[in-house]
Design a protein around this nucleic acid. Structure first.
Lengths: 306, 306
DNA sequence: CATTCTTACGTACTGCGTAAGAATG
DNA sequence: CATTCTTACGCAGTACGTAAGAATG
């Protein structure tokens, strides 16, 4: 059976001159596009693309088909717009992110998002992870990008990358040799941390307990910005994402402590409501996966891509 | 995503005035058709059919859509015929059946098959079950309808109905009261049976062994016709499908023996090669399932539907 | 009460994605 | 050697079929 998916595949492969760009356009993989083309060739008992060259060169049958495909797809499009066009389209997407996200690649994400879906209005909100989870459940936001700590049956979480965390303090606050510090050394210092409403806060708590440690004095803040400020002033030791304080470290205002064992990285995820299966949402998640690689980001806390 | 399947559904529901006929046309179930229509209504955020009446009454949106669907489907059809029409189409189907099948509903099947697919030339072959299996594997036939005893990984077997078997003999050969006979009584008689190349022969063998019986004298034939003839002449006792000897029994030439426990019915199946996924083949299997209900057939060994 | 459609639920299978392999320039 | 496409394989989500339920005339 000839399907629209197959027609889309051949059409965009020809338009964009390759399987990979076509796959991206169609929100799928090269592999899938390849299969759909092969299905077409099986259906028509004839090769449609000439693989001997690199570029997408059509055979004569291929040309016929692509022309027809263009027509069919255009008609479908018209049909959909004629009736569905009036439908209540979710043109506003509310995106919830945590502070680190906001400080790192949110600008890049929003930029690309706008380029790809100019008709969509984007409303980013910065909240703690726990708050984001509640809002997602209550449909007050549509997408959340946060540490993958807040799992739920009703959610669909897609991993987007890991956030490295490192112990930091005001230079000189923690006296140490060149050798790595032991975790126990931290017990004598005031530790600045995020509370259990934060994904990284939860991670830290688990990690500390799993090493049978009891923190000395613990100062809890709900804001990463506040934590950074407190750490800069020498108030205590905290674990911060290097990605967010790169510039500050380079200026010598913060010292990175080499503590063993190291803190585990915080795995981040783009999470949506499970039933939310619209094309737009899957596309947003995909884009997040492309953008949100913390390891490649080096930027200041004040934001702006690179 | 709008698919051709959905368009086909609404189109044929309107053309044929109901879900059930549409489902048959599309080789699927009412349930599936219902779902596809619902998908469409979800897609267009509007009811397309008015369910308050029985008949398929379209809403205004429905009318628009059906018109468009008709166009799109016609174009697809044209596209397929333009190129695929020249393709080497499997217009010859080789059907392998066993003797019972040939004697019972094969004529009906061929008739309906021809009505539904006039372009297909049908070549029926009558062989033993084991031979049919070998031929199917060797692609010497395309479809086999036989007792479901010859399973194979490479096959796809669809049940088509059960063939009742009963012990029979020349009237008076086996002396008995009105009470049911015990199986053991048969041991003293010559038993006419089909060999292990036959599905029912295998069934019989298993059944006999599972009751810890040792047959007295066993006469094996490879042909059901031969068995019937031998039984008629009083040469021995055999188990025959009533469906195939109905008339003979009614004429008083054969006596049905009420033996306990009774022989199990032989489950029949329409079997094709697993990789054979063409529309035509699935359609043939479906048709077989509709036709091949032994219980409803009453006809003479000389054949001809009813 | 028969017919027509819907709903619910378990299953099969298609089609997808990952990852490795081949081919090309 | 990098890029582009194919192939193999395991998994998941879809879509199907069965069977029971609701609605209609």
């Amino acid at each position: 059976m000839l399907t629209f998916k197959q027609l889309e595949a051949i059409y965009w492969v020809v338009q964009l001159g390759g399987f990979l760009p076509a796959a991206q356009k169609l929100n799928t993989t090269q592999s899938a596009v390849s299969k759909r083309i092969q299905e077409l060739e099986a259906l028509f008992h004839a090769p449609l693309l000439d693989r001997s060259q690199r570029s997408a060169r059509l055979t004569s049958r291929g040309e016929e088909l692509v022309a027809a495909a263009g027509r069919l797809l255009a008609e479908r499009e018209a049909l959909m717009q004629a009736t569905e066009g009036r439908a209540p389209r979710p043109r506003r997407v509310r995106i919830g992110v945590t502070e680190v996200t906001a400080m790192t690649w949110l600008p890049l994400y929003v930029e690309r998002l706008h380029a790809q879906h100019p008709e969509v209005s984007i409303a980013p909100e910065v909240e703690s992870g726990a708050m984001l989870r509640d809002k997602l459940l209550a449909s007050e936001i549509d997408l959340m990008i946060a540490a993958d700590t807040f799992r739920d049956e009703r959610f669909r979480a897609s991993p987007v990358g890991s956030l490295k965390l490192q112990w930091m303090c005001k230079p000189g606050l923690v006296v140490h040799t060149k050798a790595p510090l032991k975790v126990q050394a931290l017990q004598h210092h005031r530790i600045l941390t995020q509370g259990p409403q934060s994904g990284t806060g939860i991670l830290f708590q688990r990690w500390f307990e799993s090493h049978n440690l009891k923190p000395g004095e613990l100062v809890v803040s709900n804001s990463l910005i506040a934590l950074i400020g407190l750490t800069l002033s020498g108030f205590g030791v905290s674990y911060l994402p290097p990605a967010a304080v790169q510039a500050t470290v380079e200026q010598g205002l913060l010292e990175v402590l080499d503590v063993r064992p190291a803190l585990p990285a915080a795995r981040y995820a783009a999470t949506i409501r499970r039933e939310d299966r619209s094309t737009l949402m899957t596309s947003l998640v995909r884009l997040a996966q492309e953008c949100c690689d913390f390891t490649r980001l080096y930027q200041t806390a004040s934001g702006g891509p690179r």
